[in-house]
Write a protein that binds this DNA or RNA. Structure first.
Lengths: 338, 338
DNA sequence: TTGTAGGCGTTATCAA
DNA sequence: TTGATAACGCCTACAA
């Protein structure tokens, strides 16, 4: 089956390619006879003609594509965020290239080159790292970039996401209000801005309440289930007395921690309280339901796409930041004590 | 910054565009002076020149893009499968468009049109339904299509995935060997081939072992956590005596079932055994660890992509089917009884 | 070994 | 209200 071109349509309809193009692009308002338009449309349908995207790009120099780079699409948080991006993009006639950088800065840089080659009109970036040099290439080419959920330290780009500091503070204060005094923290990857902010919020809340932060109550994690699991195991063996509660920098680690403690016969929350961040759906599937802070991944994706598209269309001056609201979810994994 | 074209490179290197093109496309083996080649390469680097994908397509009529349609990217099973597809595609110089059809046939059809418009060279399809008419458009246009994880009833296309019947049989027989006699089943969506096959395997195994299938032990689910949860709730209220074990058509439902029973104070596996299919990672995160059948999602993705690409390159005659091996995971959610 | 010229399918510009 | 023509950036057959 030979490809149907605009010329085939034009011939069959007895008009010029220009006319067909006009029908296609709705430049038809006042300057075309309704009869001609209908005739062309009929032929288009009969021949099942679709304009060639690539030829269109050649002329318009606009790909209608937006690149989305996320650290781990199998993490429900990001797949939800991506859905938000897609949602807004498709509504506005853009398609989306999703790039799963698998937490690797190298892959991330690689993907940046790829999407630039694809001539994307904009980029939504959630970096695996706190620094990214490659993205400057995009900026130099004047491709708009927006950061979602994680800030970057080496470039000043607009950001959509939560205020990690506030979230960390909020959660810690909640636990303190429940009566917890000895509270531990499993940190996220040190290069992830949001993870660091949450930790800082925890530290501030502890200080403000005059509570001590036991050195042995702090562990480094990596945002994965396994990371939380092993950090907890390690704490069980090396830490004289366990804290009364542990906050993990995200839900996945919190769930790993719960598993590690339960394997040792500890009861959650009776023996130790556990809390996380994100409110991915698994968090309410396990028992006890996790105490966590809901980060609205879907909205973040929507907001990011929406701001980006407005910028592409030059409808607005580049917005600097959009901090989304988060919500404390009072699960069953922490209780009022004493 | 103006876009750099092949002409800019040619001018600066003092050669013709043709020569630059030759360097780019490696038609340089015996018919070009090394010195010229090096000079051109140097200028390419200096100008940071990248060939325009769209112009290239215009000539070659090959997009180098493969479309992947999955029902739900936030389901870990599919995000893993997609990773397998990506892995093989990128190794072979293809890029990938991922389309999340969100379990809607309408969206699926919509996406088929989109990827055809993108001029993809092949399609990996995991349909939300047992029938899809739209995909015939792709076949008519001679775009190769391969089905991953789920067969389609109305078209004869190559398939990569597990043998659902065998898996269902295997799991049921395992439970019977453990001593279970009254075994229930929560079905998956009726339009999903794999779900149906698993159920049929269960029925066959029960019959072969002379065990009765209680009408009230069978429920319809929809592959979601909530579906399993509500099916179990419903069983708790309407079913006189519970079965000794329940097999869910996938892990997500099995986890929902566990939650529903635990909320009623039932213990798993002491009071009732639960099993699923897929072995998504959550299944080993919860306690008790789930008894399930591991479906190698990543391999399925790899195989599907690999067969598809071979077909695109016409290296092989279209392979009909590739049935992957699965593995029974003996978790803690079922025990030896009596 | 290198260059010239034509065309891939579409749309913008100008002319009719 | 419609049409002819020239680009967009690249590749390839053919010419030199």
């Amino acid at each position: 089956m030979q490809k149907v071109t605009i010329i085939d349509v034009a011939k069959k309809a007895g008009v010029s390619p220009t006319t067909v193009s006009r029908v296609l692009n709705d430049n038809t308002e006042k300057h075309m006879r309704e009869e001609t338009k209908q005739r062309v449309l009929k032929v288009i349908r009969e021949l099942d003609y679709t304009p060639d995207k690539y030829a269109q790009f050649m002329k318009k120099q606009k790909s209608g594509v937006i690149g989305v780079l996320v650290p781990d699409i199998s993490n429900q948080f990001f797949s939800l965020m991506v859905r938000g991006v897609e949602n807004v993009c498709y509504k506005n006639g853009y398609s989306v290239i999703i790039c799963d950088t698998k937490n690797s800065l190298e892959r991330e840089n690689n993907y940046i080159d790829i999407v630039l080659k694809e001539r994307v009109e904009g980029i939504v970036l959630t970096s695996s790292s706190a620094h990214n040099e490659q993205i400057k290439k995009a900026i130099k080419k004047r491709i708009p970039v927006i950061l979602a959920d994680r800030r970057l330290r080496n470039v000043d780009l607009p950001y959509v996401g939560s205020d990690g500091f506030k979230d960390g503070y909020k959660m810690t204060q909640y636990l303190i209000d429940l009566g917890y005094k000895k509270i531990g923290f499993i940190k996220g990857p040190s290069e992830v801005a949001t993870a660091l902010e949450r930790f800082k919020g925890y530290v501030r809340a502890m200080n403000k309440n005059g509570l001590e932060i036991g050195e042995s109550y702090i562990r480094q994690g990596d945002y994965t289930f396994e990371g939380g699991y092993w950090a907890a195991k390690e704490m069980l063996t090396s830490c004289g007395r366990l804290p009364q509660a542990i906050i993990a920098a995200n839900d996945l680690m919190a769930i790993g921690i719960i598993r590690a403690f339960e394997e040792r016969g500890l009861k959650i929350p009776e023996n130790i309280g556990i809390a996380g961040f994100d409110n991915i759906s698994i968090s309410s599937w396990i028992s006890p339901k996790l105490t966590t802070v809901e980060i609205p991944a879907y909205s973040i994706g929507q907001e990011a796409a929406s701001i980006l598209i407005k910028h592409i269309r030059r409808e607005t001056k580049l917005e600097r930041n959009r901090i989304v609201e988060t919500k404390l979810i009072k699960g069953e994994s922490c209780i009022r004590i004493k």
